[in-house]
């Protein structure tokens, strides 16, 4: 059963490869809101601070908040990219991440070959990858373009392919950043169908977005992040106000 459980979760980005001394003087003197020194006297950005939440099966959660609030960082942390510096995180279920559509794609390979490559990234065999490619082909609606190197794709086609790939693997938990809104109307309708299907199958959707229309339409719950902290958590109406 899919679930995400975080207690006191914190992520800090040390600022490496900068002139630390001048940076220290400049920034610590002025604000120091999210920049601080850790115990090793390094300058770090507190990207996520003391997050505690539980997300259970069937929940569709929108992450809202201004730029730099930590939405994408939270998605990446849940995906398992970043290791928290404090707190606990427990994620149950197969994760499908749609954080960067181009990640792990090879521009010189065709769409089909990229699906196989992605399957390998997920630890599947080549045969499973080829079977997956058939499934993706049906959904992405790329037609003959599936056998064209993806460097010839438009942004929208890239999104279709990435979305089809990520959802074809039937993850228990789907993490999405808002780039996927680049699809055309026809694709958006299909995408919505697919997501609804996924979520009714007792899975979790977590989406970072600025588009309140998307939040109202697709989500059952919203978490507002500001400055790396949760400032509101509740139903969509509670968090972003009634429509």
């Amino acid at each position: 059963m899919a679930s995400i459980d975080a207690t006191g979760l914190a992520i800090e980005f040390p600022l490496y490869h900068h002139n630390a001394r001048s940076l220290k003087q400049r920034i610590l003197a002025s604000s120091g809101l999210r920049l601080k020194k850790d115990e090793d006297n390094r300058i770090v950005v507190a990207a996520l601070r003391d997050l505690t939440f539980t997300i259970g099966r069937g929940e569709r959660v929108a992450l809202v908040g201004p730029n730099g609030a930590g939405k994408t960082t939270l998605l990446r942390t849940i995906a398992g990219v970043y290791e928290p510096v404090a707190g606990r995180l427990r994620v149950e279920g197969e994760i499908g991440s749609l954080i960067d559509p181009a990640a792990g794609m090879d521009q010189l390979l065709t769409g089909r070959e990229n699906v196989v490559l992605r399957a390998l990234f997920r630890g599947m065999s080549e045969a499973e990858g080829r079977a997956l490619a058939e499934e993706v082909a049906g959904f992405a609606g790329l037609g003959d373009f599936l056998d064209v190197p993806i460097r010839g794709y438009s942004a929208g086609m890239n999104v279709r392919l990435a979305f089809a790939m990520a959802t074809a693997m039937t993850p228990d938990i789907l993490l999405m950043d808002e780039w996927f809104l680049a699809g055309d109307a026809d694709f958006m309708r299909k995408a919505e169908e697919r997501l609804t299907q996924l979520v009714t199958g007792a899975e979790i959707l977590m989406i970072a977005t600025h588009d309140m229309h998307v939040v109202r339409k697709w989500c059952t719950r919203a978490i507002r992040l500001e400055g790396g902290r949760i400032t509101a958590d509740g139903t969509v109406d509670e968090v972003i106000g009634p429509a």
Partner: peptide, 13 residues
């Protein structure tokens, strides 16, 4: 192809 057992990814700082 989700396996029969749910993968758990847990981390405690």
């Amino acid at each position: 192809m989700s396996s029969t057992t749910t993968p758990v990814h847990a981390f405690d700082a």
